[in-house]
């Protein structure tokens, strides 16, 4: 992207001369944004749209704090007649499965991101270097997977019959570990941000390629690596698909998949907790919808809290890291 932009700028005719030398006028003209009524309309429209994007999450939070009896009588309301924190205290009582799923998601996300970033960075760095004789072959190998894939079924069969990943934590980590698209982004990043002369001088000083990679290249490419790590973290955190394919055991169910399972059956939560003598009365008191929405809130909260901080890097990563070089 950046390169394209540079091209466009270069092709442009110089700015008109009368404006050029008149600083005061130029300043006024630079302020060419909307003002008055049109500005107000655009702002109202955009504010409305932004609210539309955020509203459902607020709505779910409200429902999670609504008394279950009120929900039965009035449905999901914006301002419920009776507030309640019962859904959360219920989840607290049933926390065994919830904590287990949280742990699985955290382990998968951390381990997966580490494996993913290291594997992708090494591959991308190697194919970005001219000294690597087979770089074209390996680039093609990665690129081709973007164009053609075997589909879900053969992948499922390979993963279950050959690699025996079914009901293992690796089923949640490995299938998402490498992604040719991220490799291409990283390769571009290495080409742009790691100058060959620098590496050359390190080689002359006797540094090995591994040392160069970890001590010079990695720190230099840190912004790109952070972008990939961010993509990867979000990918693992939000993944439910691989759990849907490969995980049956409650101990291995990640957060998003737990959310899916309680969609029809909130009792899934009690699978780990259920004591034999539980009374029917207690089961009837389950805050069904409120508890489900509370689960949505609890599982989305980390992203919502971290979001204002990471979104800037996400946007940068998207707009700076054009794929092509």
């Amino acid at each position: 992207m950046a390169k394209r932009k540079a091209d466009i700028v270069e092709q442009q005719p110089p700015a008109l001369s009368p404006v050029k030398n008149n600083k005061k006028k130029r300043k006024r003209l630079n302020n060419d944004k909307l003002s008055g009524i049109p500005n107000l309309i655009v702002n109202i429209f955009m504010a409305g749209f932004t609210l539309l994007c955020l509203f459902p999450f607020l709505y779910v939070i409200i429902i999670s704090f609504t008394d279950e009896q009120t929900l039965t009588e009035n449905g999901f309301q914006l301002i419920p007649e009776e507030w309640s924190t019962f859904a959360y205290s219920y989840l607290w009582d049933m926390k065994a499965q919830l904590i287990q799923s949280y742990m699985i998601t955290i382990i998968v996300t951390v381990l997966g991101t580490l494996i993913s970033v290291l594997t992708i960075a090494l591959f991308a760095y190697a194919i970005s270097r001219k000294q690597f004789r087979y770089r074209k072959l390996f680039t093609f190998m990665a690129l081709f997977t973007l164009l053609f894939n075997g589909g879900m079924v053969p992948l499922y069969i390979v993963a279950t019959q050959l690699l025996h990943l079914k009901n293992t934590i690796w089923a949640l980590i490995l299938p998402l570990a490498v992604n040719a698209f991220y490799i291409l982004i990283m390769r571009t990043f290495f080409m742009r941000s790691v100058p060959e002369p620098l590496l050359e001088s390190a080689r002359i000083d006797g540094a090995g390629e591994w040392r160069i990679f970890f001590q010079i290249v990695f720190p230099l490419a840190l912004p790109g690596i952070a972008t990939i790590a961010l993509f990867s973290t979000l990918g693992y955190w939000n993944d439910w698909f691989h759990a849907l394919l490969f995980i049956d055991e409650p101990q291995l169910v990640p957060l998003q998949s737990l959310l899916m399972k309680i969609e029809n059956n909130i009792e899934f939560l009690t699978q780990n907790t259920l004591v034999s003598g539980q009374s029917a009365e207690m089961l009837a008191a389950i805050p069904k919808d409120a508890a489900k929405m509370a689960m949505v809130v609890i599982s989305t909260l980390p992203i919502a809290v971290a979001y204002p901080f990471f979104q800037r890097f996400f946007i940068q990563g998207l707009t700076v890291g054009g794929v092509k070089e």
Partner: peptide, 17 residues
Amino acid sequence: MVLPATVWFVLFSYLPM
């Protein structure tokens, strides 16, 4: 350096293909 990702591509892309 390309080995880990290559193994992955073979197992998760090319074998399924």
